[in-house]
Simulated scan of single mutants.
Amino acid sequence: MIAKIYLRTMMLGFLMLLFLTSCSGGDSTAEPIEEGIVPTNLNLTVTIVGADANNPNGDGSGMIKCTASATNAVQYGFKVGNQEEQETVNGIFDYKFTTSGKNNQVVSVFAYSSTGNMISAFKTITVDVVNETGLVWADEFDTDGAVLNSNWFSEEVPPENGGWYNSEQQHYTARTENAYVSNGTLKIVAKKENYTAYNSTKNYTSARLNSKFAFTYGRIEVRAKLPGGGGTWPAIWTLGSNITTVGWPSCGEIDIMEHAGNNIGEVSSAIHTPSSFGNTINKGIIEIPDTTTEFHVYAVDWTTDKMDFYLDDTLFYTYNPATKNSDTWPFNQDQFILLNIAMGGNLGGAIDPNFTQDTMEIDYVRVYQ
């Protein structure tokens, strides 16, 4: 009896298998399951508006334009730093930085497929933002030719019987051979040549430019590439506008940048006041090896009680005397800006006998308040 039941069960199972097999041979109406699609070949381009060889971080507007493309992508998402992701279908995204100064950020893009799979890419960028509301004076050196007479005065007359202070060996001139603008930068050129002026003959010429703009308190930024010839002494600095009445050092002097071609890569900033001047104790030094091959921003933040000196974004010296009076702090009145290259002298040192000429190249001078 048990054997008969077992045999019947086996026969029913066999017939059911034949039925199912025969039914599966026809057309199926079930939808196929779509496999996951993964985007590939993601490319991200970030363009900084106004960027060129002289302004690698842009024109100060803070604008960037981003484009992305990827195979099998139907949507893109862009992020700047920790900002929220912004979605776009066409892979185009514009963004404006608003924080004044240099903005260092990561721009990320995410490419999504129709099945929700994603790949990503990123670029790190640096963008300059010039806050126009704080910019009170500037020279961007955009017009080729002679230096703008409305902005600068060429100081030529030597103060010491045909010579300059500090045992310097040059004559300053107002010639375009020694100072001119081209391709978006100011060139101050020190040259080896015999030049007679003011009853004195010198073996070198250069230029010394004084700004016609004077101010009290603010931030000065100068983007420059320095000369490296032995004996060159480039400087970016300020003097008190009252120098003709109170003299030096009572007028105060702020050395934003000084450099010696005999010691390439050592940049100094200094303060000269009645309390300490000449070989002043109030000095800061920073080492940066590419001062003569790359542009850097030399800056000072001058407030009512201190001065902070920067090379690019690095703070390397602060002048903040505990007691502020006419001896230590003659910096409550207007100062004007000076740009020059001296030759030899106390800081420039021995002049290379093979020296012919060298240049300080300045991209811009800006004052913020």
Rank of each mutant, 00 (worst) to 15 (best):
M63H: 14
T67I: 13
K102F: 12
A68L: 14
T67V: 13
N41Y: 13
S154M: 00
C66I: 11
W152Y: 06
V49H: 15
S100Y: 10
D142Q: 04
F122V: 03
G116S: 10
L42P: 07
Q75H: 08
N131P: 03
A68H: 11
V106H: 12
V80H: 15
A121E: 10
G60C: 05
G77P: 09
Y95H: 15
K79P: 02
S114D: 00
G60K: 12
S114K: 10
V38I: 12
Q86I: 13
T126P: 04
S114E: 06
T40D: 11
V38W: 15
V38G: 02
A138T: 04
L42C: 08
Y112W: 10
T71N: 09
V129D: 05
A70Y: 13
Q75R: 15
T45C: 05
F122H: 12
G101R: 11
T67N: 15
S154N: 08
I48W: 08
G101C: 01
Y112A: 00
I48H: 05
V74A: 13
D94I: 05
V157S: 09
Q75V: 03
V49E: 15
S120G: 08
E160Q: 02
T124V: 14
F141Q: 00
N151D: 11
S120N: 12
G134D: 00
D139N: 03
V74E: 14
M118D: 02
G77Q: 12
M63G: 02
I37F: 02
A53G: 11
N131M: 04
K96T: 13
Y112V: 03
N55R: 04
G77I: 07
E85Y: 07
D94H: 08
A70V: 04
S108K: 11
V130F: 06
T143G: 00
A51F: 00
N104M: 08
G81Q: 05
D128M: 03
L44Q: 14
S150H: 04
F93M: 12
V38P: 07
G145Q: 00
N55Q: 05
T47P: 08
I125Q: 09
S108M: 11
K96C: 08
K79I: 07
I37S: 13
V89A: 11
A68Q: 01
D128I: 03
N131K: 10
D59Q: 11
G134Q: 03
